[in-house]
């Protein structure tokens, strides 16, 4: 089981802030493909990966990264702090 978190408009488009899923995905990209194929709302949220960022276990990462042993994956738009 892996925790998937969504923030900002990604959370709004998918409709939940967090969910747990069972996955065999080896990379972030494989996880994205799996989510996209689930339902339209995921396909919409993940339609433009250029507009998305990903964190693995609370560290900024990238879509090619391996998921090996990861407990928490978060998807969100580019950050706007400050």
């Amino acid at each position: 089981m892996i925790d998937i978190l969504y923030f900002a408009w990604v959370r709004e488009r998918i409709g939940v802030p967090k969910e747990q899923i069972e996955t065999k995905a080896a990379t972030v990209m494989e996880l994205v493909e799996e989510l996209r194929s689930r339902e339209e709302r995921y396909a919409v949220a993940f339609s433009d990966l250029e507009a998305l960022r990903v964190a693995i276990d609370q560290e900024l990462s990238d879509f090619d990264a391996q998921l090996s042993g990861a407990r928490e994956i978060a998807f969100f738009p580019p950050m706007t702090g400050g």
Binding site: A8, A74, F76, P78, M79, T80, G81, G82
Partner: peptide, 14 residues
């Protein structure tokens, strides 16, 4: 600090 907080600290403004 300001440059990095702007783009690398996970905040989103609405």
């Amino acid at each position: 600090l300001m440059d990095y907080l702007k783009s690398r600290a996970p905040f989103w403004k609405k």
